[in-house]
Measured scan of single mutants.
Amino acid sequence: HERALMVNRLQKLTRMLRVHPDPKWKQEQQELIKRLK
């Protein structure tokens, strides 16, 4: 369940980064990718 939330968050971040590349979001995205591996 928590994994699904993280995947959701990651997808949302990816969409937001396409619109507005924010370093903070980029960092969070990298963190999520690490944790999901």
Results as ranks from 00 to 15, higher is better:
residue 8 N to M: 14
residue 34 K to E: 11
residue 29 Q to D: 01
residue 21 P to I: 06
residue 37 K to G: 10
residue 10 L to F: 02
residue 36 L to C: 02
residue 35 R to I: 13
residue 24 K to T: 09
residue 34 K to H: 10
residue 35 R to T: 08
residue 26 K to A: 05
residue 15 R to H: 11
residue 28 E to W: 06
residue 15 R to I: 12
residue 6 M to W: 07
residue 22 D to A: 04
residue 21 P to M: 08
residue 8 N to V: 11
residue 22 D to N: 15
residue 5 L to H: 14
residue 21 P to F: 15
residue 15 R to E: 15
residue 29 Q to P: 00
residue 37 K to V: 09
residue 17 L to V: 02
residue 22 D to F: 10
residue 21 P to D: 14
residue 6 M to N: 01
residue 11 Q to F: 11
residue 7 V to H: 08
residue 13 L to C: 05
residue 18 R to E: 07
residue 30 Q to D: 07
residue 29 Q to G: 01
residue 4 A to P: 03
residue 23 P to S: 06
residue 13 L to D: 00
residue 13 L to E: 01
residue 28 E to S: 02
residue 11 Q to Y: 13
residue 33 I to P: 00
residue 33 I to N: 03
residue 6 M to I: 09
residue 28 E to R: 02
residue 4 A to W: 15
residue 13 L to Y: 00
residue 5 L to P: 03
residue 13 L to H: 01
residue 4 A to T: 12
residue 16 M to Q: 03
residue 18 R to N: 06
residue 14 T to R: 11
residue 34 K to Y: 08
residue 37 K to Y: 14
residue 10 L to V: 04
residue 10 L to I: 08
residue 10 L to P: 00
residue 3 R to Y: 15
residue 17 L to H: 01
residue 22 D to P: 00
residue 23 P to W: 04
residue 36 L to W: 02
residue 36 L to T: 01
residue 28 E to K: 01
residue 31 E to N: 05
residue 28 E to Q: 04
residue 21 P to V: 04
residue 13 L to W: 00
residue 3 R to F: 15
residue 8 N to K: 15
residue 6 M to Y: 06
residue 30 Q to Y: 11
residue 18 R to T: 05
residue 24 K to D: 07
residue 3 R to K: 12
residue 27 Q to G: 04
residue 12 K to Q: 14
residue 3 R to L: 14
residue 25 W to H: 07
residue 5 L to V: 12
residue 7 V to F: 12
residue 24 K to W: 04
residue 25 W to N: 03
residue 35 R to H: 07
residue 15 R to D: 14
residue 26 K to Y: 11
residue 2 E to K: 07
residue 4 A to K: 14
residue 27 Q to S: 08
residue 20 H to Y: 11
residue 23 P to V: 04
residue 32 L to P: 00
residue 36 L to Q: 01
residue 35 R to E: 06
residue 19 V to H: 07
residue 22 D to G: 03
residue 21 P to Q: 11
residue 23 P to L: 05
residue 32 L to E: 01
residue 1 H to C: 13
residue 2 E to L: 10
residue 23 P to N: 05
residue 16 M to H: 03
residue 7 V to P: 02
residue 4 A to Q: 15
residue 15 R to W: 13
residue 27 Q to N: 05
residue 21 P to L: 05
residue 35 R to S: 02
residue 10 L to H: 00
